[in-house]
């Protein structure tokens, strides 16, 4: 029947197969993490969220001992990324770089998720808003901008409907009593700055780090940024110089943190928290923040959750009162700040 050589061959193959299956079973009972982790970034590459996520990624990898794969998943003002991570098994293998939009997507009607659905590992950095415009534009200062907006409805590039930059420009328009602009969501702060560069829009609002290179290279003019002190290199005036009334709002903009879905086992969260703390406290990360004009926030664990809760109250009600958000925060039991 079967020749002995072929029989040997078959036996050998079966043995190998058994070994493979065994190793599969053996590894199943080992500790978390056993395989690579997916880090979802709910915005396009190049933006503040993306930069922070990708900077933290290798640092967290060191602590966790497994590869972390960063995946951009833009869309729906971060609701697509949020929903994806929330729908994935709550086992710690899918984590989310969470920007400010979690405070607004519920009232904007883009998602049913709020901060209560997440274990916030921490809030790493704050990103102040900057107003940028093409150098050819006739508007040369933030005061001129207000004047022009009295008569004209400008088109303004922002990241997404309801994002931090939307709030920034809407606040600016409301405080100065001028026309609310037509918002053009470009899918991220960096694409918004590019839209201004390409003259697709009259003005763009985005995070300082997202436009800093273009401002340095003189491709965009920064009219002002929403902070208290002028930035020196490159020179960006603080909005409070021309509009002292904004002192009570600055620094104004977005923040970026990291989160994992509620319901993830406590020991997994603890390990992630550990890795996150290590990453944000590292010199590499602090240098990165300083070089790119991010403001360090450095909150983690429960402090961070409280911060996000307050942020939600402030942002959701701001958007609703300004008429930008269609749904009342009351529907999500978000108290007034």
């Amino acid at each position: 029947m079967l020749k002995s050589l072929q029989l040997n061959w078959l036996a050998g193959a079966l043995v190998i197969l058994v070994l493979i299956c065994w190793s599969g079973v053996a590894s199943a009972s080992a500790e978390w993490p056993q395989r690579s982790i997916l880090m979802v970034i709910p915005f396009n590459p190049g933006g503040a969220t993306d930069q922070i996520g990708r900077t933290l990624e290798p640092l967290m990898e060191e602590k966790l001992g497994v590869p972390i794969a960063a995946q951009n998943m833009p869309g729906g003002a971060t609701s697509i990324g949020n929903q994806y991570v929330f729908d994935a098994p709550h086992d710690g293998y899918t984590i989310l770089v969470e920007p400010t939009d979690i405070t607004s997507i519920a009232v904007m009607g883009q998602s049913k998720l709020t901060w209560r659905d997440w274990n916030i590992l921490g809030v790493a950095a704050a990103v102040p808003a900057v107003f940028v415009i093409h150098p050819d534009s006739s508007i040369k200062s933030i005061a001129e901008l207000a004047t022009v907006m009295k008569e004209k409805q400008l088109s303004v590039g922002v990241a997404a409907s309801g994002c931090a930059w939307t709030r920034a420009i809407s606040l600016f328009a409301k405080e100065n009593g001028v026309k609310q602009p037509m918002l053009v969501p470009m899918g991220g702060g960096h694409p918004a700055a590019l839209a201004a560069l390409k003259k697709e829009v009259d003005l763009a609002v985005c995070g300082v780090p997202e436009a800093i290179d273009l401002i340095k290279g003189k491709k965009l003019t920064a009219l002002a940024y929403m902070g208290a002190e002028d930035i020196q290199e490159p020179f960006i005036p603080a909005i409070t110089k021309a509009f002292p009334g904004f002192n009570k709002f600055v620094p104004f903009g977005g923040w970026v943190g990291m989160a994992v879905a509620k319901g993830t086992p406590a020991n997994v969260v603890a390990k992630l928290q550990n890795a996150y703390n290590y990453a944000v406290n590292s010199n590499k990360f602090k240098e990165f923040l300083a070089e790119n004009n991010f403001l360090e926030v450095g909150l983690s664990g429960e402090d961070a959750e409280e911060y996000v809760a307050v942020s939600t109250s402030v942002n959701a009600w701001l958007l609703y009162d300004l008429g930008v958000a269609p749904i009342s925060p009351e529907e999500f039991e978000i108290p007034r700040p």
């Binding site: 079967l2 061959w9 078959l10 193959a13 197969l17 395989r35 590869p67």
Partner: peptide, 26 residues
Amino acid sequence: WLKCTGVGVLITILIYLAFRYVLNLP
């Protein structure tokens, strides 16, 4: 039949090794 099984096993092993260890795909 023998060749079928042999090829089947061989290819599966190759694929498993390549994807698990080289590309890190579950």
